[in-house]
Design a protein around this nucleic acid. Structure first.
Lengths: 186, 186
DNA sequence: ACTAACATGTAACCCGTTACATGATTAT
DNA sequence: ATAATCATGTAACGGGTTACATGTTAGT
C-alpha cells in the first residue's frame, strides 16, 4: 500500500501530472518504486478523493491539456505519519535467479544473454543516478536534512547497481565455461 | 507468475510437503523468492491439477501425516521451457528508501532504528548463506553445471547482502548527525 | 500518410496478503 | 494446563498487470 506514499513523495517538491509521474517516476523515486500509468491514474483519483492531493487543469498549446496534481497539507501530514510507522521488509523476488537454479548446458546461452541484457540496462541506470548524485549530492554533510535522505537512497541504488554489474561479470564468465563445455561435447 | 516455477525448482532435488516448502523456502530459493503457506498450498493444488506434480501421503508417527509432492516429467519439461522464455525485470520496491526521501529531524531516530533492524536481519541471512556457500560451493569451477547456477544465485544474494550492510553503516552515521543536530537545537 | 510522443482513462483478471479455521503431538 | 511445533486448508480483499479505449499534435 505504499504506492500512495511514493506518489506523495514524488510531489513534495514539484507538482506533476499523471503522465509526468508515470514517465518521471524513474528520475525521482523510480529506483525504488515503479508503477504503470493505469495504476497511477487510479491512485491519483483515490488521493484526490481523500483530500491529500489537489488538482488543476493546465492549458497547453501544441499539446493536449494536462491535469496537474499538488500535495495538500493533509497529504503532507498523512505522509509524515506514514514515515513514522513500521516498514514492511520487501520480499526480494527475482525470476532470473530462480532460473539460474535450473542452469544446464541447454540454457546457458540463453541465460547469459539475459544476464547481459540486464547488465546493460543496469549500466544505464547507474550512469544516470551517478550523474544526479555528482551534480546535486556531491557533499552529503553540507546538504539540508531532507536531501541527506535522498542522498542515502540514491547511494543505496547506485551501490546496489554497481555490485550487480560486478556480479554480472562473474556470472558471464562462469556461464561462458558452461557454454564452452557444451560446444566441446557436441 | 513465477511462484509455480519457484516451487518446481525447489522440488527438483527433494520431494517436499507444503509445510516443508513454506518453511524451507528460505534455505532453498528463499533468498530470491518467498511465499506464505496459504499461497503455497493453493499453488500446489494448481500444479497437481496440471499434472506437473504428483502427491503421496506419508504416514508419520508422533506427527500428523503429511502430503509430499514430487515433480513429474511434465513438470520438468514445463520448467525447462519456462527457463528459455523471456525474464521479467523485477521492479525494485522498497518502502524504506521511499521513507528516506522524507527524512527530517522528526523521523531521523525512527528511520535509524528501522535501518538498524534491517541490518541485523540481513546479517543473519548473509551469515546463513555464506555458511552454505563455504560448505557446498567453495570451488565453483569444479561443480556440476546445475550447481554452478546455484552458486551464482547464492553469490548474488550474499554480495547484495554485504553491500547492503555497508550501506547501512553509512546511513546510520549520517542519520546520527541529523539526530545530533536536532538535539542541539532543542 | 504514418509514426512517435503527449495525455487520460476503464475493465477484467490474477496474484498476494490477511484473516479465519481446524486439529495432533511434544515439551515445559 | 499451556505453549510451541507440525500440518493443511478456505475466504475475502486489495493491489498490480494486461488488455482495451480514445484523442491531439509534431515530425518525417
Amino acid at each position: 500500500m505504499a504506492l500512495a506514499q511514493a506518489i506523495l513523495t514524488a510531489l513534495i517538491d514539484d507538482d506533476l501530472s499523471g503522465y509526468e509521474l508515470a514517465k518521471d517516476f524513474e528520475i525521482s523515486v523510480g529506483f525504488f518504486w515503479n508503477a504503470s500509468h493505469q495504476q497511477i491514474y487510479q491512485e491519483l483519483r483515490k488521493l484526490s478523493d481523500k483530500g491529500w492531493l489537489n488538482k488543476r487543469e493546465v492549458t497547453q498549446r501544441g499539446k493536449p491539456n494536462k491535469i496537474v496534481y499538488g500535495i495538500t497539507l493533509a497529504g503532507r501530514e498523512a505522509l509524515s505519519k506514514w514515515v513514522l510507522g513500521p516498514t514492511k521488509t520487501q520480499a526480494a523476488k527475482d525470476e532470473l535467479l530462480v532460473k539460474l537454479y535450473n542452469l544446464s548446458p541447454d540454457n546457458a546461452g540463453h541465460l547469459a544473454a539475459e544476464v547481459q541484457a540486464r547488465r546493460e540496462e543496469m549500466m544505464r541506470r547507474v550512469y544516470l543516478y551517478e550523474k544526479i548524485r555528482m551534480r546535486h549530492y556531491a557533499d552529503p554533510a553540507t546538504l539540508p536534512t531532507r536531501r541527506k535522505g535522498v542522498y542515502l537512497a540514491l547511494t543505496a541504488g547506485i551501490r546496489q547497481g554497481e555490485q550487480f554489474l560486478a556480479w554480472c561479470d562473474e556470472a558471464l564468465e562462469l556461464l561462458a565455461t558452461v557454454e564452452a563445455e557444451q560446444a566441446r561435447q557436441q
